[in-house]
C-alpha cells in the first residue's frame, strides 16, 4: 500500500549496506571482517524467520533445519563437484525441496498451528541426531564424509562463478552484505505483491481468505518454501565462515533465531536484522566474560520479551513515538488510529 515509504526504506537499507561493505573492512581487523560475515549470515537467517513468522504468521520452531540443510548441502555439493556455484544452487534448492515435502505434510494434513511448531522443532532434532550418528568412514555422500559430530572441516570456500578465484574474506563479506540487502529488499517487495497481500489475508483470517477464493494451504506452503530457501542462503554463507557441524541443528540455534525475531519485533524486517546483530554481540560479550552461561542470557531475554514486550522492540518504539506525537499534536481527535497497536502489523 505504502509504496513511497517502502522505496525510502529500501534506499536506506542499500545506503547502509553499501557504507558497511566499503568502510567496515577498511577499519576492522581481518577476524573482525570474518565475524561480521558470520553476523550477516545470521541476519539473513533472522530475516527468513521474520518473513515466515512475523509476516506470514506461521510459527516455525525448527527454522534451523533449513539453515543447517543449506550449510550441509553446500559443503557436500562443493566437495563433490569442486565447483562452488553449483553448490550454491544446492544450498538453496535442498532446503526448499525439504520444506516442500514437510510443508505439504503439515499444511495439507490440517494440523493445528501449534503442532506445527512442535513438529518442526522435532524435525530439527531428528536431523541433529541423525547427522551426529554419521561418524566414521562408512557415512559419506559421494566424496564427502559427513563426519558425525565433527562436521565437515574441509568445506571448499566460495569462488567466483565458473572456475574463478577463491573469494577473500573481505570479498566474502561484501558478498554477504549484498545478499542481506537483496533479501531485505525481496522481503519488502514480496509483502507488497498480490501474493504477499494474500499471505497477509491468510495470516489475519484463514477461513475468510478461503471463502474469498484464496488457496490458503498453497499460499502457506509457498511462503514456507521461500523462507526455507532464504534460510538455506544464510546456511551457505555460514558454511563459508564457520565449518559445518551438527550443532547448527541444535536447540540453541533454533532458539536464537526465534529470540532475534521476537526481540526485533513481529511484522517488521529491520527489527530482526538489528536484533540479530546486537544480540550476537551481546552473546559474544557474555561468552568472553566466561562466568555467565550464554543460555542464561538467552533464556532471560526470551522470558522478559514474551512477558513484557511481546510485540518486540521496533513496533513498541513506533507505538510510543506515535503516542508522544499524538500528544504533542492534535489532542483528542476521537477514534484516531495509533500506529502499531495490537492487531496491526506494519512492515518496516
Amino acid at each position: 500500500m505504502n509504496r513511497p515509504l517502502m522505496l525510502v526504506q529500501i534506499g536506506l537499507a542499500m545506503a547502509v549496506g553499501l557504507a558497511t561493505m566499503v568502510l567496515f573492512p577498511l577499519v576492522a581487523p581481518l577476524y573482525g571482517v570474518i565475524n561480521a560475515t558470520l553476523y550477516t549470515s545470521m541476519a539473513i537467517f533472522a530475516l527468513s524467520l521474520a518473513l515466515l513468522w512475523g509476516f506470514a504468521g506461521i510459527l516455525c520452531f525448527g527454522q534451523s533445519a533449513f539453515f543447517g540443510l543449506g550449510a550441509y548441502a553446500y559443503a557436500i555439493a562443493a566437495i563433490n563437484f569442486g565447483d562452488t556455484t553449483i553448490a550454491c544452487a544446492f544450498a538453496i534448492l535442498v532446503p526448499v525441496l525439504f520444506a516442500a515435502a514437510l510443508g505439504y505434510f503439515l499444511f495439507y494434513g490440517r494440523l493445528s498451528d501449534v503442532y506445527l511448531g512442535v513438529i518442526t522443532l522435532t524435525v530439527t532434532l531428528i536431523l541433529f541426531k541423525l547427522i551426529n550418528s554419521t561418524g566414521g568412514d562408512s557415512w559419506r555422500i559421494g566424496k564427502a564424509r559427513i563426519g558425525g559430530f565433527n562436521g565437515i572441516p574441509d568445506t571448499p570456500p566460495l569462488r567466483v562463478p565458473f572456475g574463478g578465484e577463491i573469494l577473500s574474506p573481505t570479498q566474502l563479506f561484501v558478498f554477504a552484505i549484498i545478499c542481506l540487502v537483496v533479501v531485505y529488499t525481496f522481503c519488502k517487495w514480496l509483502a507488497l505483491t498480490r501474493f504477499g497481500r494474500a499471505i497477509a489475508a491468510v495470516r489475519e483470517n484463514e477461513v475468510r481468505a478461503e471463502l474469498l477464493g484464496y488457496n490458503a494451504k498453497r499460499l502457506k506452503l509457498a511462503i514456507f518454501c521461500i523462507s526455507a530457501g532464504l534460510a538455506g542462503l544464510a546456511g551457505l554463507l555460514f558454511a563459508n565462515t564457520v565449518f559445518v557441524s551438527p550443532t547448527i541443528f541444535g536447540l540453541s540455534m533454533a532458539a536464537q533465531v526465534l529470540i532475534w525475531v521476537i526481540v526485533g519485533g513481529l511484522g517488521t524486517f529491520v527489527g530482526p536484522v538489528v536484533a540479530s546483530i546486537v544480540l550476537q554481540m551481546v552473546a559474544v560479550y557474555f561468552g568472553k566474560l566466561g562466568w555467565i552461561d550464554p543460555n542464561i542470557v538467552l533464556g532471560a531475554l526470551l522470558i522478559a520479551f514474551v512477558v513484557f514486550v511481546p510485540s518486540g522492540l521496533l513496533p513498541t518504539a513506533t507505538r510510543i513515538a506515535g503516542i508522544l506525537k499524538n500528544r504533542a499534536g492534535s489532542r483528542g481527535r476521537a477514534g484516531q488510529a495509533l500506529p502499531g497497536e495490537v492487531g496491526e502489523r506494519q512492515v518496516s
Binding site: 497477509a200 489475508a201 495470516r203 489475519e204 483470517n205 475468510r208 481468505a209 471463502l211 492487531g343 496491526e344
Partner: peptide, 8 residues
C-alpha cells in the same frame, strides 16, 4: 458473525 481481516 462478521469474519474479516481484523488487522487490515
Amino acid at each position: 458473525v462478521p469474519s474479516l481481516f481484523d488487522g487490515l
